[in-house]
Design a protein around this nucleic acid. Structure first.
Lengths: 213, 213, 213, 213
DNA sequence: CATGAATGAGTTTTCATTCAT
DNA sequence: TATGAATGAAAACTCATTCAT
């Protein structure tokens, strides 16, 4: 992932080439999020990027691989904000709250990323690019789960289900903004409320369970 | 929504016709969830339902309308489980916890429903059927928001943002199982953990905010 | 081969359907022979047959399968003329001469068939349809070889190389008219000469070898 | 034909350039014979020759012209073996037998040449390069026909049909190895049998025609 | 000259939808 | 009403060819 697909060679003079590639990714993310992965045609992307149709396929083996690269980028970007939280040691609740809040803020500012991730999941069963997406997603969740692992114990959450915790955090944020977007919900939610939602998981788990009845 | 498109009259004698329609919806939901709305072809659905391809279009104006009907059904079904919680008065936390838990349980048992709702959102901008889906979704959230309204006050949640609360509950459940499914997450989560997650929103909100530091 | 590919069911009322299929094959053979298999586009064939482009693919899984069916037809047709010669017992030379002459006459009258067979060989390595073509061709040669088997002995031709004999007869005729066509050769060769050429293989083999010099 | 297209002058110093050109032709012949003229992409050829894609077009005006050059080369090569037979005077039968045998041997050793010639015929109607191929082929046959002319009389073959004789000899050999190749026939035919086949035309024609029945 | 990045015309194939039977 | 044959608009992708470096 993330490397040039056809010929891996990246000449030094081709700074322009990389710029084109980035423009394609940028415009592609925007268009796919806006109109849907399927409704968005390759030619639209190239037109938006100001290059010929064929150019797309010199950068990406297929439309699906393009999506896979996009997913990879988004997750890399996301993890860059999340990881730091795991480095400075805090109590379990603060850690989880931080992670939740960062997720919500991230996708509030980038509803495109939420749209992309959600729709990309639909490709997971189709072709090798789909497989790549699936693996990347699994890897990401695994990473976040590792981060949350220390918190599990003090929250009384079984560590073998840490991945579900990570999933819940992601699904929360992604789902909220993906479902909300077309309904005009989520985008304008005040940050104070959003933060409160972000902390909710942590707080809810932290509170001592009363006898379940 | 929910009415036969071409001839609006639903003859009482044609029980078989309704059966066919239901079989189409049933198989369609399964196939669309499994293979994706786009990858699932009309002919696959009719074949699975044991009818000719043309029959599909005597029941549904288009493939998109079919999806709209499916969405309508799913939301009707969901609301049928949720509504009762709003009728017997309880405290805010219990109400919200109940709603959350019901959502999670519902979609754990029906990952198809989660897949359908998520993918249907991608159609929202396309055509009149998309519009219908959007409206139905908005209406649904509005309904749940109404239900949660009484809880808002005691939780200190601004009532004009009740819809966001409803959205969060739905997004939680739908996202968790839709993203989790291809990764093998969520489906096997023990009910005890799931319930804990279901209550999390309620508990997290209920807990008194300490001074934010 | 030779059967409807997608859905094998052939309703009784659809005589028209089979007519369409035949028209496609007919026009396809003509166009492919004239302009080359590659240069001949599917849409040209359907246009010539007076049907929509999509119709082609309801009859044939792909363009290559179409060619495979065509090859099958041509070989069936050819064998229908050749086989009778093997039934009435004659001497080796007459048998071989007859087979050679029939081949030449056949392809003189049907240069399209020669063009098709030749070009179809070029597809042999590509895809499953290519495989089918290859097998059909092998089967055909095997059949002719069987026919020629009795003649081998009296001609002193090793029976395990009977297939080469069959190949030579076919290659002769096909090559002659395929290479000759664009040069204006072959088509007008008087039948008397053609027959002489047809007998040539038989006579040449029949003649006792003098001590090789 | 045979001259470099863009700049017709063949600088004496650029030996390397000619080497590159030859490598392209060599690899091109091999690849086109192996995978088919159409399936073989320009880039494959340049890659095999170890040069950049653009280089191809500095040597050849187009892919089709490349094929034309290849055809020209093959025929030149072939004629180099055939011509000597016409110089030392022999009887008609020996001449024809020699020509036939040389053809068969030539293409048995060079199935690539057979494949190329056959497929090149398919280009004959397309573009100016096709025209060039056609003319080169006609010229070649004319040449061989001239060679065979003296034999015609004593064989009782009408001299105005000498070109058909030449065509038959070529078609024989080319067809045999082109059709045979994918079926595994021809390549291993023992030389003794091959020579017998090569002489067949001569012998068959030489024998006095009995009253045709 | 050599190169490989860019290009877009061109092709096969798919599939929702229509409609005659 | 049910059917499945026919349709053609689309869309991804290919690849010979051009051209700036």
């Amino acid at each position: 992932m993330e490397e040039t697909p056809r010929p891996a060679r990246e000449g030094p003079r081709s700074k322009k080439r990389r710029q084109t590639r980035n423009r394609l990714l940028e415009e592609g993310l925007a268009l796919m999020a806006q109109r849907g992965i399927h409704a968005c045609k390759v030619e639209e992307i190239t037109r938006a990027a100001g290059v010929g149709k064929g150019t797309f396929f010199t950068h990406f083996k297929s439309k699906q691989h393009f999506v896979a690269v996009l997913v990879d980028q988004v997750l890399n970007d996301l993890v860059r904000r999340v990881r730091p939280l795991g480095l400075s040691p805090t109590d379990a609740e603060s850690l989880l709250a931080g992670v939740g809040t960062v997720h919500l803020r991230y996708f509030q500012l980038r509803p495109q990323a939420a749209a992309l991730l959600t729709q990309a999941v639909g490709l997971v069963e189709h072709g090798q690019a789909g497989e790549a997406i699936k693996e990347r997603l699994a890897e990401h969740l695994e990473g976040v789960a590792q981060m949350l692992l220390p918190a599990c114990q003090s929250l009384g959450w079984p560590p073998e289900h840490a991945r579900e915790l990570a999933l819940m955090v992601l699904a929360n944020a992604v789902g909220f903004f993906y479902l909300g977007a077309p309904l005009g919900l989520g985008g304008d939610t005040p940050m104070s409320l959003l933060d409160r939602l972000g902390r909710v998981l942590a707080r809810g788990l932290a509170r001592k369970d009363q006898p379940p009845q």
